[in-house]
């Protein structure tokens, strides 16, 4: 299988230089090569969806970015500089925050306490509850979160979507530049999914870079600006969402490749012998692009 990325060619994605660039990073666990020479470009103000089948290596890739499992080789370029991220603290210091699928909230604490957990504000040695509460309310209001009755509600009493919201707000409270979300809508119903996706969109609109892992292609196409596809540990494509259709993405995930044909991006059908046939060539409107 030949892998190739097309984002660098004829269509300029944006004038902005990337926030994060991974250049042919690899990772293996023992004899298992999980990531092979993966390239990834993440820009500020854009939602980059990371998709791929189960076991494709998505979680491993973000764990590498977050410093939990450092990459074996390849370059980690952040804001134009090659950096070495070997533990989560270093990633946090760069402004990288991860919202894990198992949310890591304390049910017995309220929203403010969860948002500030581990980074509490103090005044003369005691917890500065008022400052924390003010800033928590500001942050939530800034994200246009209006679903929680009180920031002093215990997290235990929140719905799944609200909990996800708190987890995301926790990630953006700290001047983060890159927020990584691992399947934020996996356990949510329709309304709550919409609510969380809207929040994800808002993060990018506020100028943050967002990496979103999801198995739901409708969600991906609804919010993502860029789509990066992993297939068996290789990055098979990184395309702009507006250039591809649902079918294209699904075919990429299941092993199709991206080719350029008559000036247009075309995805081969992995199930068709010979390949190279266009699956869906209709250009797609973008309803949510700024």
């Amino acid at each position: 299988m030949t892998s190739m990325t097309t984002e660098a060619d004829s269509r300029p994605v944006t004038d902005q230089s990337p926030l994060l660039e991974l250049r042919s990073v690899s990772k293996s666990f023992g004899a298992v090569q999980v990531l092979q020479e993966v390239d990834l470009t993440v820009r500020l103000g854009r939602v980059t969806a990371l998709v791929g089948d189960n076991g494709a290596g998505k979680s491993t890739l973000i764990k590498g970015i977050a410093g939990i499992y450092p990459f074996d080789s390849g370059d980690y370029v952040f804001e134009g500089e090659t950096v070495h991220v070997h533990n989560p603290k270093q990633a946090n210091a760069l402004g990288v925050e991860v919202v894990y699928q198992d949310l890591a909230l304390c049910d017995n604490l309220d929203i403010v306490q969860n948002l500030y957990l581990g980074r509490e504000a103090l005044s003369s040695g005691f917890l500065d509850e008022i400052t924390m509460e003010e800033r928590a309310a500001e942050t939530l209001a800034g994200l246009s979160v209006r679903t929680v009755k009180s920031v002093r509600q215990k997290v235990a009493s929140l719905s799944g979507g609200q909990r996800q919201t708190v987890a995301i707000a926790r990630a953006v409270l700290w001047n983060s530049k890159l927020v990584i979300l691992d399947e934020p809508t996996a356990a949510l119903g329709v309304a709550q999914t919409e609510q969380v996706l809207r929040l994800v969109r808002r993060l990018a609109d506020r100028g943050l870079a967002v990496i979103l892992i999801s198995h739901n292609m409708n969600d991906v196409l609804a919010v993502a600006d860029d789509i990066a596809v992993l297939y068996l540990g290789r990055m098979t494509a990184q395309v702009q969402a507006k250039d591809v259709s649902l079918t294209d993405v699904v075919q990429l995930i299941t092993g199709g490749t991206l080719i350029e044909k008559e000036g247009r991006v075309v995805v081969t059908d992995p199930h068709e012998a010979g390949g190279g046939l266009a699956a869906d060539q209709t250009p797609h409107e973008t309803g949510d692009q700024p």
């Binding site: 309310a137 939530l140 209001a141 246009s144 979160v145 209006r146 679903t147 929680v148 009755k149 009180s150 920031v151 919409e194 609510q195 996706l197 809207r198 969109r201 292609m217 409708n218 969600d219 196409l221 609804a222 919010v223 969402a241 507006k242 649902l246 797609h284 409107e285 973008t286 309803g287 949510d288």
Partner: peptide
């Protein structure tokens, strides 16, 4: 694009 996010916000009171 298959789906668009509505900008209407049906949620309740302000925090």
């Amino acid at each position: 694009m298959s789906q668009t996010l509505s900008e209407a916000e049906p949620e309740a009171t302000d925090v």
